[in-house]
């Protein structure tokens, strides 16, 4: 079974945050906790201002630092590459929060445990799409086998505002706007 991943087309994302809301709703997250977050980056000046949006959740990395560092084994990789989280085992030490360069794990204060995107594994196991993918009205988000996504759409996991992909080898492919490309 291949590594599952996300594809995000930045060139058509309008930053409406529907994916973020759908994720929050699906996971019943408290105020200030987001498993998927849309960030907006802007700059430049007239006549060349620029703006782009970046929708990101857990990247279900091939070499996830959170899984390696988690002392309880609560974070683990499934056969399909999804980084899942067993809340029963979690002790709320927050070491995963200190380990992820994408800020994916959140600390859930009320529960005294961490939590993160599991790619809606329960829906995937039923043959459905993750909530964020189905909610995107621009069809900017896709999920699937990473190799298949790469063959179909291409994309990169290295853009200007992201940590180097060599740290954890994230399973994310992005079609960046020219201004977001690394080295521009």
């Amino acid at each position: 079974m291949g590594q599952k991943g996300f594809y995000f087309d930045m060139t058509i994302c309008i930053g409406c945050k529907t994916c973020q809301v759908a994720c929050k709703d699906k996971n019943e997250l408290p105020v200030e906790v987001l498993f998927r977050k849309v960030r907006t980056f802007e700059g430049g000046k007239y006549p060349k201002p620029w703006v782009y949006h970046l929708s990101m959740s857990c990247n279900h990395c091939a070499e996830p630092k959170c899984v390696k560092n988690c002392p309880t084994g609560a974070l683990y990789k499934r056969k399909d590459g999804i980084v899942a989280h067993n809340r029963e085992r979690c002790i709320g030490c927050q070491y995963c929060v200190w380990s992820c360069p994408y800020g994916a794990p959140n600390y859930l204060e009320e529960e005294g445990k961490s939590g993160k995107c599991d790619m809606c594994a329960d829906l995937i196991d039923k043959g459905k799409n993750p909530a964020c993918v189905d909610a995107c009205m621009m069809r900017a988000l896709h999920f699937g086998d990473l190799e298949e996504l790469k063959a179909k759409y291409g994309g990169t996991s290295n853009i200007k505002v992201l940590p180097d992909s060599g740290i954890t080898k994230p399973s994310i492919l992005i079609n960046p706007k020219p201004i977001a490309k690394k080295g521009v």
């Binding site: 390696k68 988690c70 002790i91 859930l108």
Partner: peptide, 21 residues
């Protein structure tokens, strides 16, 4: 420091990888 201290013993479960363990 732990959110769920009653399960602190679980912290010994990843000795092969985790420095925290």
């Amino acid at each position: 420091h732990l959110g769920t201290p009653v399960k602190a013993i679980n912290s010994l479960s990843n000795l092969s990888n985790s420095w925290l363990s």
